[in-house]
Amino acid sequence: MAKRAVRKRARKILGEEPVALVWCEIRKAIPTPPKDVHLAAGKGRLKPRHHWLLYVGGAVFFFVVVPIMVIDKLGELIPFSPSRQRGRRSGGAQSPPDARPSGPGQDPTNGIFDGDWNLTAGQLLLQWYGHSPNPQRLVMLARDRICVAASPRRLLSPTKADDFRSVAEFPFDQGRVEGEAGQPRGFATFRFRFADGSWLEVGGLAEPEDADHFLRTISD
């Protein structure tokens, strides 16, 4: 459960005790918006900024692990055995190329939102990483509104992060959250649904107690 400092900060922002709160995130890549829509929204980031440790890990993988894998693979292929060479010359049966479905059947929105960039959900999505390089957002429910807050940190602990600030608020006549209680741990999601018909789905709900309480609250 979120620490006392987190709840104290939430009370300060809302001006009251939150009815429920939970850290969540967009778990899929944000689809590419039309250029004119992206430009009109300020051409903000559409991807998170990762912590420097992730870049170090990537460099280690590229310069150490990959060469080892290549050398190991070459060891399997060289030298070729005579039987393998005869098999190649005889035109033996080869496995068919990998055929994977692509194109028309794929969802261009990635299942994240309704698909209209000009409505509330699309505009919120366009500004998601403009408020913070971290994908996680704290959603707080007050008695009459929903508040979305972000921390400026690249890495944060959902139980301890107490430097978040409000980045968007929606009175209940403009937006609400929908979800089901009792969803499998690790797969739970909920949706923002706005008065203009747009919606945005988030997941990665942090802290089991907060997540369970939040989902029970919005499903009542």
Rank of each mutant, 00 (worst) to 15 (best):
M1A: 14
A2W: 04
V6Q: 07
R7H: 13
K8F: 14
R9D: 03
R11T: 15
K12M: 12
A20K: 03
A20R: 00
V22S: 06
C24G: 06
E25F: 02
K28F: 13
K28C: 10
A29V: 13
T32L: 11
P33A: 03
P34T: 04
G42M: 07
K43A: 14
P48V: 06
H51D: 08
W52D: 10
V56L: 14
A59R: 10
A59S: 12
F62L: 15
F62C: 11
F63S: 09
V64D: 05
V66S: 03
I71Q: 10
G75F: 10
L77F: 12
S81R: 14
P82V: 12
R86C: 10
R89H: 13
R89T: 14
R89Q: 15
R89G: 07
Q94F: 13
Q94W: 13
P97F: 11
P101Q: 13
G103F: 08
G103H: 00
D107A: 02
T109Y: 07
G111A: 00
D114G: 15
G115C: 09
W117T: 01
N118F: 11
L119R: 15
G122K: 01
G122A: 06
Q123T: 07
Q123E: 06
Q123A: 07
Q123C: 05
L124F: 11
L124C: 05
L125I: 07
Q127A: 12
W128S: 01
S132F: 02
N134H: 10
N134D: 00
P135L: 05
Q136E: 12
M140C: 04
A142N: 01
A142L: 07
A142P: 05
R145V: 09
I146N: 00
V148H: 00
V148M: 10
S151V: 01
L155V: 14
L156P: 06
L156N: 07
L156H: 04
A161E: 11
D163H: 08
R165V: 13
S166I: 04
F170R: 01
F172S: 02
Q174P: 07
V177R: 02
A188R: 04
A188D: 00
R191V: 04
R191N: 12
F194R: 00
F194V: 04
D196E: 00
S198F: 08
E201I: 13
G204C: 02
L205T: 03
A206P: 01
P208A: 14
D210I: 08
T217P: 00
D220Q: 15
